[in-house]
Amino acid sequence: MRRAAAWLAIAACTAGLLAGCSRASIHQQESYVFGTRVEVLTWDASEEKSRTAVGEVLREFDRLHRAYHAWQPSELTALNSAIAAGRQHIPVSPELAAMLTDAKAIAATGDELFDPALGTLIALWGFHTDTFVPARPDPAQLAAAIQAHPQMADLRIADNQVTSRNPAVQLDLGGYGKGYALDRAAAILKARGISNALINIGGNVLALGSKGDQPWRVGIQHPREPRPLATLPLRDGEAIGTSGDYQRFFELDGQRYCHLLDPRTGWPAKGTQAVTLLITPRANAGTLSDAASKPVYLGGERWRDYAKRYGIDHALRVDADGKIQVTRALRDRLQFGEGITPSAVID
């Protein structure tokens, strides 16, 4: 399997997209969490203040990774085991209860196309492992998993307890957790007096403040070429999320099978190479940038309708043929790469 993180090039001196970047003004720390590279940059704060605050952020990322891992022992796997055993009123931490409540609401808004209940299907397709062997699932097992039709609507969450009416529900927060971690990082940095920062978790990016007298500038990765599709300035409180078939996938017999599964069919989605959403400043912008990109990606030709459901005006889609569709609001912010032109600009 090829792993190309949902990369958005960070336009700081380390990415080479802006000149004149002062090393005395920028602080950068990297780590590897959530199965991807994470990077936090701060601007115009002392080395000691930045290092302390970013260190706390990276420790929080590690905590979230361990607490909600989908296949290694965690609170989430313990909950999945209890659901599979048919237990009712399963106690969970207040944090997990809040995350599941939020994820359930996001799923309902998007016709359950964002579906963290699909853990069994994700495992059958081989995406619950760090040592991947490209193979299609056993047809009988796949058919049984599809027929069981697990979805977030099967869950009842109340008083920090979870009950599922469907024992086939197996939770995987991989399409939610990176965005949630962005929001947690922003809260920590603000609490530590960091006003200007850029947080990148494998291509899910959130900006705080600015980079001096310039906005932070990021690049949207081209889904088929090793270069940015476009770049744009990212303003205080904005977040960007991308879902694409180039992020985690394998090829077999000339076919590409990506990790984005369509809950209607149980198969890897087709018809779209990538979607990118820009979330304007609002509560939980990071979470929405991650989770909402799934129904927009899976929505196919209805992608704009799904973006509107989440109050998102800034969106871009690259279809299966490589044609670029972009909303007018986002088009006005973008600088496309050389030779790249959108085929359609829509309201």
Rank of each mutant, 00 (worst) to 15 (best):
A191C: 11
G174S: 09
R192F: 10
P139A: 15
T163V: 11
N200S: 15
D183C: 13
D154K: 10
Y180H: 14
A144W: 01
A148T: 11
D172E: 05
R192K: 15
R156N: 12
I194W: 00
I188G: 03
A148Q: 10
A186I: 10
D183R: 09
Y176E: 05
Y180V: 12
Q141L: 15
A187Y: 02
G174W: 01
Q161R: 15
G179C: 13
D183A: 12
N166K: 12
D138K: 08
Y180D: 06
A144N: 06
P137V: 08
A158M: 10
D172S: 07
I157L: 07
G175Y: 01
G202C: 09
I188T: 04
M152R: 02
G203M: 00
A158D: 14
Y180R: 15
A158S: 14
V162F: 02
G177R: 03
R156M: 09
Q170F: 02
D138A: 14
Y180Q: 12
L182F: 08
A145V: 03
A153I: 08
A153Y: 04
L155W: 03
L173K: 04
G193L: 14
V162N: 05
I146K: 12
A185C: 10
A168E: 02
Q141V: 05
L173Q: 02
D138Q: 10
M152D: 01
G174Y: 01
K178G: 07
L182I: 09
I146L: 13
L171M: 08
A197P: 07
I199F: 02
P167T: 10
Q147W: 03
G203R: 00
K178Q: 10
R165S: 14
R165L: 09
I188Y: 01
Q147I: 06
L171T: 04
N166I: 08
G193A: 14
A153D: 12
I194S: 01
N160P: 03
R184T: 08
L142N: 06
L189N: 03
L142G: 07
V162Y: 03
M152K: 04
A145N: 01
Q151I: 00
A140L: 14
G202T: 09
L198Q: 05
M152F: 04
Q141R: 15
G179R: 08
I199N: 00
A143M: 02
A186S: 15
M152A: 11
Q151V: 03
Q141E: 14
R156L: 12
Q170V: 11
D183Q: 13
I157W: 02
A143L: 06
A197D: 06
L142V: 12
D138W: 09
H149V: 01
Q161I: 05
I199H: 00
N160K: 07
Y180K: 14
A185M: 05
L182R: 05
Y180I: 08
P137F: 04
G179T: 13
P167W: 00
S195E: 10
L182H: 06
S164D: 02
L173I: 11
Y176K: 09
R165A: 13
I157A: 04
P137Y: 03
D172C: 07
I201Y: 00
N196K: 02
A185G: 07
A143D: 10
A186L: 09
N160Q: 14
A186Q: 10
Y176P: 04
L189M: 09
V169T: 14
G177N: 13
G175V: 06
Q161T: 15
P167F: 01
G202A: 08
A148M: 11
A144K: 09
I157N: 03
S164H: 02
L173M: 12
V162P: 02
A144S: 12
L171R: 03
R165D: 13
A143H: 06
